[in-house]
């Protein structure tokens, strides 16, 4: 559905995207993950024919985004970052306007607007003015707009930014549902988002593509380094000695928590779950253990991990 090869975009002297290549198959939900300024929006804007690439080509549904941009525009539903809408229009009026703009006939537009309003649960706000809607509703209006002409590909730029947790869940659910019938490319800087919705993840950092893999594979790469956090009340030397003696622990870090508690971050050897061992040690020594958690891998961890791998390969 999407073929991007060696895409580079420079603004003035700055390189926003540097030699990115990837493919998206029909029916996939692909997440474009990266911190702010990684070049996600730039890639999506190039794919939606808003900006030209400096070097490289991109094809959507077999059409070049620069030379055949009319064909491309017909086949994509694009929701830009921050989801700009005309605040002075009513919801149904806005969607009808967008549908007509995308070339639907009057009767077809009416029919499709009805369908997407049901799909995005907008039926009860059809007469409301867009500018007075809550952010969650506005986001759904943007999604409905992207869907209204039945595009083959949906390109969504940060669709859950600025929403409250409940709205985020609703929008994610909606994206997941849409994924059954559409190919979707969604950008985000929140890891749980891609974990929940996407089948494949592209990781972008400073304009370069660091990894492109399925969710399972990426997690596997990470889980080789299992981290466990334990909060224990015990004398410090005892703790240090104990962790030093345990062969399965590769690396540990102790920092004082409140009272007599210490926070121990323990990194185990590849593929070993040491939580039960830590508990066993606490029982043997008579320590008080008040927390034992598996360190969750944040987006930061993924970056650190992948960037480190990247550098090791180069040296």
């Amino acid at each position: 559905m999407i073929e991007v090869s060696d895409l580079t975009k420079r603004y003035g002297g700055q390189t926003a995207v540097a030699g990115v290549s990837f493919r998206v198959q029909k029916g996939e939900i692909v997440g474009l993950l990266g911190p702010n300024g990684a070049g996600k929006s730039t890639i999506l804007r190039i794919l939606s024919c808003y900006l030209p690439a400096t070097i490289g080509t991109a094809r959507v549904a077999g059409f070049d985004v620069f030379d055949e941009c009319d064909e491309v525009k017909k086949r994509i539903g694009y929701m830009p970052e921050n989801n700009p809408l005309h605040p002075d229009m009513r919801v149904r009026e806005y969607l009808t306007f967008r549908a007509r703009l995308k070339g639907l006939s009057a009767s077809r537009a009416r029919e499709r607007v009805g369908v997407v309003m049901d799909q995005c649960r907008l039926a009860e706000v059809g007469r409301r003015i867009v500018g007075q809607l809550s952010k969650g509703y506005r986001q759904r209006v943007g999604l409905a707009d992207a869907l209204v002409h039945q595009p083959e590909l949906l390109i969504l730029d940060e669709p859950t930014i600025g929403l409250d947790p409940y709205q985020v869940r609703a929008v994610r659910q909606l994206i997941k549902e849409l994924g059954r019938t559409h190919t979707i490319l969604v950008s985000t800087h929140v890891l749980p988002e891609v974990e929940m919705t996407c089948s494949r993840i592209l990781i972008l950092h400073e304009g370069r593509l660091l990894a492109a893999d399925s969710k399972e594979n990426l997690q596997k790469r990470l889980s080789q380094e299992e981290k466990v956090v334990a909060e224990i009340a015990a004398p410090l030397p005892e703790l240090q000695e104990c962790w030093k003696e345990m062969e399965l622990i590769e690396h540990f870090d102790i920092s004082p928590a409140d009272g007599e508690y210490y926070r121990c971050a323990l990194t185990a050897r590849a593929g070993v779950d040491i939580r039960s061992l830590v508990f066993e040690q606490a029982r043997l020594h008579g320590w008080t253990l008040r927390e034992l958690t598996r360190g969750s891998h944040t987006l930061e961890d993924i970056f650190v991990h992948i960037i480190r791998g990247d550098q090791e390969e180069t040296f």
């Binding site: 939606s48 024919c49 808003y50 994509i76 830009p80 700009p84 809408l85 005309h86 605040p87 703009l101």
Partner: peptide
Amino acid sequence: SGTYETLMTSPVK
């Protein structure tokens, strides 16, 4: 307001 982007990425000339 940014609606220029939605406008120009619609199939319009």
